[in-house]
Nucleic acid binder design. Sequence first.
DNA 1: ATCAAATTTTTTGATTATCAAAATATTTTT
DNA 2: AAAAATATTTTGATAATCAAAAAATTTGAT
Lengths: 145, 145
Amino acid sequence: MSNYEVLHDILVRLFQEILDIESKALITSDFKDISVNDMHIIEAIGENEPKNMSTVAKIMSVTVGTLTIAINSLVKKGYVHRERSEEDRRVVLISLTEKGRKANAHHRRFHDGMIQAVLKDLDEDQQKVLVKSLMNLREFFDAYR
Amino acid sequence: MSNYEVLHDILVRLFQEILDIESKALITSDFKDISVNDMHIIEAIGENEPKNMSTVAKIMSVTVGTLTIAINSLVKKGYVHRERSEEDRRVVLISLTEKGRKANAHHRRFHDGMIQAVLKDLDEDQQKVLVKSLMNLREFFDAYR
DNA sequence: ATCAAATTTTTTGATTATCAAAATATTTTT
DNA sequence: AAAAATATTTTGATAATCAAAAAATTTGAT
């Protein structure tokens, strides 16, 4: 395969499959009642102070109404805690439960493994080349936003 | 940002956003009645001999029932031609119409631009490094399949 | 040659993700 | 105090998806 063909294969096909693959990797025995999408919401909520609905919806690039539905299910399944803010009772604050934090750690370990896999066998200079080309890729995509 | 952080940003965030970005880039004035998913089905059908439903469903990794619904809409919108095989009348053969081929070309131009963007500024050796690290990435994902 | 089994596709019924717009609750501004 | 603004949820709709049932056709076994 030429460089062009390898890149086409990776950038087109792998990207198309990535969410699917991630879902198989992430949704293991311990966390089989949630989707990759749920996992990304958990990541967006994070482990610092509680966040309000609008903030998380913005991170996820979905409407707040869409997020409400996902949070309903994550609360019911015990991954997310939801409470009204005492300071401004319009605001709903969401945060991870212990179970949510465990799922988040599981997700992070997957990402770490992925990055290790990419950097494997590359010396410092080669890593620079990789980073540069991926930054080119991000720029290309940013131009469309 | 450290190499690790750049890679995390690209491999995690960009991948999450990629379908969204692709949809904005692809679904322009000329092709605004179809989704990125439809575009990928068009790509899977391709421009060679007509393919049957099972073959395309397999390429897309969806059930044939799911594909039936997508093809209903693509036929109605004039992107895809559907006919019974004369040799085996159980089989349905799908192929691209002229409009479908135009959409496919539009999609391919986007992919080409993407690959140009990645290779930009890289000499032959650097391209090799990039290809190697992306192959590492594919291997990592393949292990989960 | 006939009938049962296998194959290919569509249909059905359900779930999940999504949006825009309406509704609700609360706070801020006038 | 009333009006406007803000944050969230609810509603009603669409699209993508699956598994299982149904329909049409072909293949294989006796």
